[in-house]
Simulated assay, not measured.
Amino acid sequence: MNTDPYQSLLTHLATCHDKSDIEVLLTALLTEKEQHEIANRIRIFDLLERGVTQRDISEQLGVGIATVSRGAKAIQHHDVSALLATHRKGQ
């Protein structure tokens, strides 16, 4: 049994069979504010990948420019482009 809480979270998410299972798990784990912040981070990633400027993203999402900059820095350090492209294809 894995005792690392983050790895445990990943294991639980990986065992979810569909979107509704993930929603139930995340609703149980996260406050509404935390859910919103994570959703905004994904939106920031997506908009950056589409070439939207950081200032426009900040205005569109109603978040500070520092929040968008952190998202841009995270995208540089973690290659999520393929995951975002997969998501866009499924829309």
Rank of each mutant, 00 (worst) to 15 (best):
44 I>W: 01
68 V>H: 03
86 T>S: 01
79 D>H: 05
77 H>F: 07
21 D>M: 09
33 K>P: 02
73 K>Y: 14
44 I>R: 02
50 R>T: 06
13 L>W: 10
13 L>Y: 09
52 V>G: 04
31 T>P: 04
37 E>V: 06
33 K>E: 15
45 F>Q: 02
9 L>R: 06
9 L>Q: 05
24 V>I: 13
79 D>Y: 01
77 H>Q: 15
8 S>W: 12
66 A>G: 05
82 A>D: 06
1 M>D: 10
19 K>C: 13
52 V>N: 04
25 L>W: 10
15 T>L: 12
87 H>Q: 05
19 K>N: 11
2 N>Y: 10
43 R>I: 09
56 D>T: 02
22 I>H: 00
19 K>R: 14
66 A>N: 06
66 A>W: 00
47 L>N: 09
80 V>Q: 08
73 K>F: 12
29 L>H: 12
59 E>Q: 11
53 T>G: 06
40 N>C: 02
49 E>W: 03
33 K>F: 09
69 S>G: 15
33 K>L: 11
30 L>H: 10
26 L>G: 07
72 A>I: 09
60 Q>S: 07
9 L>H: 06
48 L>E: 04
9 L>T: 11
63 V>W: 00
18 D>G: 07
90 G>V: 04
90 G>K: 04
20 S>L: 11
5 P>L: 13
89 K>A: 08
49 E>M: 08
42 I>T: 08
69 S>V: 15
37 E>Q: 14
8 S>M: 15
48 L>S: 05
62 G>P: 07
52 V>M: 11
64 G>H: 03
72 A>Y: 06
73 K>V: 15
75 I>W: 04
12 H>R: 07
70 R>V: 13
59 E>K: 11
2 N>L: 14
17 H>L: 10
41 R>T: 06
88 R>K: 06
60 Q>Y: 03
3 T>A: 14
21 D>E: 11
45 F>T: 04
31 T>C: 08
18 D>H: 05
49 E>K: 08
91 Q>A: 15
36 H>C: 03
27 T>Q: 15
62 G>A: 05
58 S>W: 00
49 E>C: 07
89 K>W: 00
87 H>N: 02
19 K>L: 14
34 E>P: 01
62 G>H: 01
20 S>Y: 06
7 Q>T: 12
71 G>Q: 07
74 A>Y: 12
82 A>E: 07
42 I>E: 07
50 R>F: 03
40 N>W: 00
12 H>F: 06
85 A>H: 01
1 M>L: 13
53 T>Y: 02
3 T>F: 13
70 R>S: 11
63 V>T: 05
35 Q>P: 02
52 V>S: 10
29 L>C: 15
83 L>E: 11
53 T>E: 05
25 L>M: 12
10 L>K: 13
87 H>F: 06
18 D>W: 01
9 L>W: 09
67 T>I: 08
30 L>K: 09
54 Q>R: 10
12 H>N: 07
18 D>C: 08
26 L>A: 13
70 R>E: 14
63 V>F: 00
64 G>P: 01
29 L>D: 11
7 Q>Y: 12
91 Q>P: 01
41 R>N: 05
1 M>F: 13
50 R>H: 08
22 I>N: 00
37 E>T: 09
2 N>D: 15
47 L>W: 03
70 R>W: 10
72 A>L: 08
68 V>S: 06
33 K>A: 14
20 S>V: 08
71 G>Y: 04
78 H>A: 05
